[in-house]
């Protein structure tokens, strides 16, 4: 494209008139064909380098900041870290978090009796993670959340809570990355522990359409 400078900081892109060979139509079409031919040959000898992801056989690897489905972390003793302070539901722009608080009779600690996230309302902005003062809610890199009924989009404690020392390696958006401090905050270092499919052994199996952990051994 021909460019003329007409003022400081302003250039004009000229409407170049066509030369005679351009007006003949065929030469330029053949030139264009050469461009596509170059791409064809380049791709033909570099099948593996094609910019194509054959989903679902091959899945895109997202970064450790990916904002996918949420999890609720637990303390070393297996209780949920969440203290039902309602900060996440206050910060949520989509109003998709419903919490009901209860009190532990032994320790007098507050804890969530009900913690529901409506994944159809959720806009995956990560504000709940930013708002949590207890290191209790993380986001994973799980983005496959297809469901067949609307009711299944509402995930509760059973689907969200993960065991203590849940590996942070495959985790997505979280309050901090790498090792900042290891004062026993959830996530921690606990690699190697299998992902539990339900928080309590005696409960019914989790919603298969939502929970994507490893199957129970």
């Amino acid at each position: 494209m021909a460019i003329t400078r007409i003022a400081p900081g302003v250039v004009r892109v000229e409407r170049a008139p066509l030369s005679i060979s351009d007006r003949l139509y065929l030469p330029q079409v053949i030139m264009g064909m050469f461009v596509t031919l170059r791409h064809l040959l380049k791709n033909l000898f570099n099948i593996k380098g094609l910019p194509i992801i054959s989903y679902p056989e091959v899945k895109r690897v997202y970064s450790e900041r990916f904002r996918g489905r949420h999890i609720l972390t637990t303390r070393e003793d297996g209780t949920t870290r969440c203290v039902a302070c309602y900060m996440c539901s206050t910060a949520c722009p989509a109003e998709c978090i419903t919490i009901e608080a209860g009190e532990d009779e032994r320790t007098r600690e507050k804890f969530p009796v009900r913690y529901d996230i409506d994944l159809l309302r959720c806009i995956f902005c990560g504000y709940c993670v930013d708002a949590c003062p207890e290191d209790a809610i993380y986001m994973t890199r799980d983005y496959e959340m297809a469901i067949d009924t609307r009711a299944r989009a509402v995930v509760g404690l059973r689907d969200l809570v993960v065991p203590p020392n849940f590996p942070v390696g495959p985790m997505g958006w979280r309050p901090y990355y790498g090792d900042i401090d290891k004062k026993g905050w959830a996530g921690g270092t606990g690699l190697g522990q299998p992902i539990r499919s339900a928080p309590f052994e005696d409960e019914a199996p989790p919603n298969p359409d939502v929970f994507r952990g490893e199957p129970r051994a």
């Binding site: 494209m1 400078r5 007409i6 900081g9 302003v10 250039v11 004009r12 892109v13 409407r15």
Partner: peptide, 21 residues
């Protein structure tokens, strides 16, 4: 150091030229 590209004509072609530049 950059320039604002303009084009004459105000037709679809001019909009193409401006966007490409």
């Amino acid at each position: 150091d950059w320039d604002v590209p303009i084009a004459e004509g105000g037709d679809t072609y001019a909009r193409f030229l401006v966007r490409l530049e």
